[in-house]
Design a protein around this nucleic acid. Structure first.
Length: 150
DNA sequence: GCCAACGTTGGC
DNA sequence: GCCAACGTTGGC
């Protein structure tokens, strides 16, 4: 089982939305992030990160429910993730089914995450990291969960 | 709202 | 294949 971190703007889709019902994590339009989505397997867990909000941080944990599938939102002109260059014949983007596991009682803010030891390799903390899907090692996972529960 | 960093695009 | 221009991300 693998661990991941995925970002979402809570105004668009928050951990509370996920708590209400399982969802498809779609709209990822970056190849590196896409490649990580393709590596995910049912049973993997991910940290749900709230971005572009005040304060940004990790809000809880979700579960990957199945393997990546074509992201049809890229073909839908009404969808936020519409990609006019895509077609049914050429659809490079994927989505993964996800479900809620739990919300932290308090958000673990980015400012606090930056103070933790042992997260130097986490892409989230890199200079202006824009990667929205990234792997998390077992060690990093433990550090972050411990901080969230402290 | 600002802007730095980064990915993508497209001319050559 | 280079690289300048452009668009986007996302913290602050």
């Amino acid at each position: 089982m693998a661990y991941w971190l995925m970002k979402s703007e809570p105004d668009c889709f928050s951990i509370h939305d996920l708590a209400a019902k399982p969802a498809l994590w779609d709209g990822v339009r970056n190849y590196q992030a896409r490649n990580y989505l393709q590596q995910m397997q049912a049973g993997d867990l991910f940290l749900f990160y709230h971005s572009s909000c005040q304060p940004p941080g990790i809000a809880g944990i979700g579960c990957i429910d199945g393997p990546a599938q074509p992201d049809l939102s890229a073909l839908d002109p009404q969808a936020a993730g519409y990609d006019p260059r895509c077609s049914e014949q050429r659809l490079p983007w994927v989505a993964v089914p996800v479900s809620f596991q739990r919300a932290f009682t308090e958000l673990l803010p980015l400012a606090q995450i930056r103070t933790l030891q042992g997260l130097e390799e986490l892409p989230l903390l890199g200079r202006a990291s824009r990667l929205s899907v990234m792997p998390v090692s077992a060690e990093q996972w433990q550090i972050l969960l411990s901080a969230a529960q402290a």
